[in-house]
């Protein structure tokens, strides 16, 4: 019996499995792009509608080098990040108010249910009329789409904090502010972070729909513009870029989560 040897074998097994997973993941993406290109070249699918990876790539290089793509990407990213930060922050603040006043929370309950059930993007036209067809409307859209669900999830986390922690603080004569600061908020951090992860996705929805409606700048605008002039290369390019940046944002939030959770 050689434990060290067995351990080496076990590690080799793990590495082998990891390589297999990576191989299949790559296989899927390569064959998808390859098949897409092939189907488009041979007119199995209509290249005018479904474009082709090579065409999307050429458009990307062109738009990147003349700098117009960067402008749209920057605007959409700015709107999404801001929308998602405002949505989560506002959700946390409203949740804190609900926690603070059980009476208010009971009064607000049916309204929260209705607002939560309501499809927020339907408010888009009203927002644009009220706030003007610009960035403010789009950021508001990115925020309201996540604020109600954040409020509900975070408020639930607040009231589910073990009451014994509150009891400990009460024996030290703590007031409600201190109880919130010392127990309720830090105990709910993991929940707040996980709503952050959900809100990344939601804010992208809000911002893209907002850009559809305002139709002036950003990746959502590129999609709607590409659709209107029947340039589907542009539509696919915008979709790809959204996929990349949405993934990056999600990964960043996960990184923050790991850092914060590690600290406890």
């Amino acid at each position: 019996m050689n434990i060290q040897l067995l351990h080496e074998q076990y590690k080799a097994l793990l590495r082998k499995e990891k390589r297999r997973i990576r191989f299949f993941q790559l296989l899927i993406i390569i064959s998808f792009i390859g098949l897409w290109e092939l189907a488009s070249q041979n007119h199995w699918i209509d290249p005018l509608i479904f474009s082709a990876p090579s065409k999307v790539w050429r458009l990307f290089v062109e738009k990147w080098s003349d700098g117009t793509l960067m402008i749209h990407v920057n605007i959409t990213l700015f709107e999404t990040v801001l929308g998602f930060i405002i949505g989560t922050l506002l959700g946390t603040i409203i949740a804190a108010i609900l926690w603070w006043s059980p009476f208010f929370s009971k009064v607000a309950d049916p309204y929260l249910v209705v607002l939560n059930a309501m499809p927020k993007v339907a408010l888009g036209p009203i927002l644009i009329v009220a706030l003007g067809p610009g960035m403010i409307s789009i950021i508001t859209m990115g925020a309201i789409i996540s604020v109600i669900i954040s409020t509900i999830v975070i408020y639930t986390a607040f009231i589910e904090v073990d009451t014994n922690y509150v009891k400990v603080l009460q024996t030290f004569n703590a007031n409600r502010t201190q109880i919130f600061k010392e127990a309720i908020l830090p105990a709910s951090f993991p929940t707040i972070i996980s709503t952050l992860k959900v809100n990344v996705g939601l804010s992208w929805v809000g911002v893209i729909v907002g850009e559809f409606l305002v139709s002036a700048k950003g990746l959502g605008y590129l999609i709607i513009y590409g659709f209107q002039v029947f340039n589907f290369n542009l539509v696919f390019l915008a979709l790809m870029i959204i996929a990349v940046f949405a993934t990056i944002m999600y990964q960043l939030v996960e990184l923050v989560e790991r850092k914060l959770i590690k600290a406890r």
Partner: peptide
């Protein structure tokens, strides 16, 4: 209490001095 209910995100020192801080 029946269990310690030390605050898991605070160090032992912060936990022990919690009452002094609050009072």
């Amino acid at each position: 209490l029946q269990q310690d209910y030390l605050f898991p995100w605070k160090t032992i020192e912060e936990n022990v001095t919690l009452g002094l801080k609050l009072l």
